[in-house]
Simulated assay, not measured.
Amino acid sequence: MENPRQHEFQPQASNRSWAGNIATIGTKVGWRHLTVLIDLFSFVWSVGRLISGWMPIWWAGPSASGRRSHRLLLHTDQGSQYRARDYCDLLRKREIICSMSAKGCCWNNAVAEIFFSTLKLELDLDDNRDTLISPQLLKHDLALRIEAYYNRERRHSTIVYISPIVYEQQIIACCTLNTVNP
């Protein structure tokens, strides 16, 4: 696999370069796997699915979130689910460019890895915690944290200390304003 992104973490527009990954989270009834997509322009997070079985993630990919553009680049690690023929074929069919760093590269998927590390810390989802939660409570907590907090309230240093949604709204407003001559 190639790495067309080449550690470029600041694309010039929304919906051009995304990072994706899967985290495994323990619950009372077994493991759940959370898939996320991150727009590297604005750091808007999109939760794919919380699932109980391990699967190649052709769950709809970037088009599921409604945030799609022509020639989208999707960067992941080299997990087997991302190297699966069906997954790669689906990306090609949807004209999504697949990007992966070399094995063992510390920058392999840093943005998604940092996101999961922070999420697990803030929600106390550490594998060593004393009490496991139900899958329903996990789904609720993840939705609140990601959709309500990370996207709408949490400030990010990379995007001038504002939330991802505010950042995108400002970019859209800036680009759509027209000057009017009296």
Rank of each mutant, 00 (worst) to 15 (best):
H70V: 14
Y167C: 04
F116D: 00
G66K: 08
F41W: 01
S157Y: 06
E122M: 03
S80K: 12
L142V: 04
K139M: 08
I25L: 05
D39T: 03
Y167E: 04
T35L: 05
S63K: 13
T76L: 04
G48Q: 01
Q136A: 11
L90M: 08
I165S: 04
R155V: 06
E95Q: 15
V47M: 05
L119V: 01
A19L: 04
Y149R: 12
I114T: 05
D126P: 04
H7D: 15
R145E: 06
A19P: 02
T27V: 07
P182S: 13
W59M: 11
C98G: 12
E147D: 13
R71M: 14
K93V: 09
Y149W: 10
V166L: 13
R155T: 06
L74C: 08
G79D: 02
A84N: 09
S14T: 09
T24N: 11
T27Y: 03
W107I: 05
A60S: 11
I114A: 06
P62N: 07
L119R: 01
H70W: 12
N128A: 11
T27D: 02
A112T: 01
R5S: 09
N178P: 07
D130W: 10
E95W: 10
A110G: 03
Y82I: 02
S42V: 03
R16E: 05
S157H: 10
A64R: 09
S99K: 03
A143H: 14
A84P: 03
Q81A: 09
L137R: 15
R129I: 03
G30Y: 08
N109T: 00
